[in-house]
């Protein structure tokens, strides 16, 4: 009987060895280990054995069963792996074919620039304010120290609707409105982005509609060196840490002293090139200390309060920063232009 068992083991192991698929393996399993399987049949004959022989043969029988079971399990794993492998092979695709596109839009370049500037000044404690685009002559001019008959307010330069109403020529009226709102009672920091309009013929450097961001800080004891410090921070964040700024005296009716801020030219690093017209510097914005007449009209006592203001053109900044060479691009909305600035 022991020989019989050994023979079954040998025969079974040989068959398992040869088997090529899971189905046949299952059949082998049934034919040896199943209820009617050969091993089971042999073990049924155990009863005829002597009590001495029984444990010995029993042990051998268990060993045979284990050997066959192990071999089947092992073969099963091998065959399963092989089958999976085959399936995966069959599922292979060409990863170089184009993907199904996800539709992605994006912001307009000016919005991108404006939001970047907004966020920068928000970080310095500025609030963002807006105001009407159709303004009164008072807020657009008079409250900004530009009385009627002032040479800087030529009718020819503005889009008037009536004698008293016009499309705002700058976002400065928002400054005047904000001062009124705070009633001369407390210090504040604000910037005001928005659309503005001037009677310019549209060409590569002029647009009858454009955007502006102005800023205003009013408080007790505001110094001109504060203006320089804030503008320096702005310029470095916006144009790069290695940029320097300089202030040049200028003139605006609503500030005194008035300055223009230049940054060192990025192209030549201040050496002078065609971009900066050989000066090494590029004009970025106008600024100054708020004129006492403007503070007073805004309800702030110029003996107690002082302030600084600045104003810049996002178009100009975008042109400098991204190399756009025609201001009309911002309003033509050529989809190829728009897409150039959708990336992060």
């Amino acid at each position: 009987m022991q020989e019989e068992l050994k023979a079954i083991q040998q025969e079974a192991l040989a068959k398992i060895q040869e088997v090529g698929n899971l189905k046949e393996l299952q059949a082998i399993k049934v034919s040896y280990l199943g209820k009617k399987g050969s091993l089971t049949q042999v073990l049924r004959g155990m009863g005829k054995l002597s009590p001495e022989e029984r444990p010995i043969v029993g042990e051998i029988a268990n060993q045979v069963r284990e050997a066959i079971t192990n071999a089947i399990d092992e073969k099963n794993t091998t065959l399963e792996n092989a089958a999976l492998e085959e399936k995966l092979q069959a599922e292979a695709i060409d990863v170089t074919l184009p993907g199904r596109p996800a539709k992605v839009g994006g912001p307009h370049l000016l919005t991108k620039v404006i939001e970047e500037i907004e966020d920068l000044f928000i970080g310095m404690g500025f609030e963002v304010r807006e105001g009407p685009e159709v303004e009164t002559d008072y807020f657009n001019f008079e409250a900004l120290n530009l009385p009627k008959n002032h040479p800087a307010r030529d009718m020819q330069d503005s889009f008037y609707i009536t004698n008293e109403l016009l499309l705002r020529t700058h976002t400065s009226p928002v400054q005047a409105r904000t001062m009124k709102e705070y009633k001369g009672e407390k210090g504040f920091k604000m910037i005001c982005p928005g659309r503005v309009y001037r009677r310019d013929t549209d060409d590569a450097t002029h647009s009858h509609q454009f955007t502006q961001i102005e800023g205003l800080y009013v408080d007790k004891d505001v110094k001109m060196s504060d203006l320089k410090g804030v503008l320096n921070l702005f310029a470095k964040k916006m144009f790069g840490e290695e940029r320097n700024i300089r202030l040049r005296p200028s003139f605006f009716p609503f500030t005194e002293p008035s300055v223009e801020m230049d940054i060192s030219c990025k192209v030549c690093n201040g050496e002078g090139c065609s971009v900066c017209k050989g000066t090494g510097w590029i004009e970025i914005l106008g600024a100054g200390m708020v004129h006492p007449n403007v503070l007073e009209m805004g309800g702030y006592d110029p003996k107690v309060y002082s302030g600084f203001a600045f104003g810049m053109g996002p178009e100009r900044i975008a042109m400098l920063k991204y190399g756009v060479n025609d201001i009309r691009q911002f309003y033509l909305n050529d989809s190829r232009f728009l897409k150039q600035f959708h990336q992060a």
Partner: peptide, 14 residues
């Protein structure tokens, strides 16, 4: 002129 930063009223901004 030196570079300084505003020291007056604290404003939250936003």
């Amino acid at each position: 002129l030196p570079f300084t930063l505003p020291t007056g009223t604290a404003t939250a901004g936003g």
